[in-house]
Simulated assay, not measured.
Amino acid sequence: MERRDKAETIRNEKVVNCVYQNRNALFRLVCFPWGGGGSTYFAKWGQDIPNSVEVHAIRLAGRESRLEEPFASDMNQIVDEIACALLPIIQGEYFAFFGHSMGSFTAFFTALHLKEKYNLEPVHLFVSSLSPPHSKARIHLHKDDLCKEEIFYVMKKVGGIPDKFFDKKKSPEFVTRLLADLHILNDVTSDIPSKTRLSCDITCFSGSEDIPLDMEAWKDVTSGSFDSFVLPGNHFYLMEPSNTSFIKKYITKTLEISAFTS
């Protein structure tokens, strides 16, 4: 039993990266990376976020310490793995999700899975820079177009990714991860919800120079309250220090208020 528990702990730590542990925090904020991304950027948020929040960042297979593992085949596989890894962290705790770009989908479907299977739901879902799965405004590529050249064109159009990442000689790992993630993202389908799926509050963030987004459509998936913010910048507006600071402060304030009103 002890050996199995240790093995599960190691597995969970591979999936969930918490660099700055704060077990006395009131909330667990779980951050989901963008397509091609790893856990490091969001894991560092824990360094200067208020003590009421402990930050956990999701690390998908095929990157960082999981480099030798094969990429997930679909969103269901990703969600199943994340949910299992998160259960020991979020059970009995107040927790919230933040997802950027592809991470918005991953956060949403993980929240939905946790609610339907375990009756657990984040107190708040924060999504960024991606229309919801049912929106007609989301970019959807034909499978024949999922080649490096077409993907690079789309990603350069949304903006915010350094040019070096589009050079397969300088950053082959990023190219491979990006293509793998976009195949999964492209395969996700969802109809307009006939009934609300979640009951938590949702807040959307997006960049003023990003391609047209239908962030308002996120209100369709919850019976909770909805809010939306447009911050200066492109698809990766959140990497601007002033925007990062705004998001962290907003999340912290929102979660602290929810603790007093719950």
Rank of each mutant, 00 (worst) to 15 (best):
G159E: 08
V53I: 15
E216R: 02
V15L: 12
M75K: 03
P70F: 01
S262Y: 14
A57D: 09
S262T: 05
K169N: 13
P122E: 02
L67A: 06
R11W: 12
S39R: 04
C31A: 10
R3C: 07
V15G: 01
V221T: 10
N12K: 06
K117C: 01
D80Q: 13
F95H: 00
A72H: 15
P88A: 03
L120G: 12
G35T: 11
A180D: 04
I89D: 09
T222S: 15
N76T: 09
Y118H: 15
N119F: 02
P50N: 09
I211D: 01
H134E: 11
S190K: 10
I78C: 11
A180L: 01
K249G: 05
D181P: 12
E93Q: 14
P133S: 12
S128F: 01
K44M: 14
K164C: 01
L29E: 04
F166E: 03
L255Q: 02
G224C: 07
E2L: 02
F205P: 04
H113F: 11
Y237E: 09
F152S: 12
Y41V: 15
G207Y: 00
H100N: 09
S199C: 13
F105Q: 11
W34R: 00
F246M: 09
D210Q: 11
F97G: 08
S199E: 10
S194N: 09
N12T: 01
A137W: 04
V158E: 01
G159R: 03
S129G: 13
T40K: 05
D187R: 11
R138P: 07
E256F: 07
K219P: 00
M1S: 15
A61F: 08
M75S: 03
C84Y: 04
V30Q: 03
F95Q: 00
I247C: 01
E69K: 02
M239G: 02
E54N: 03
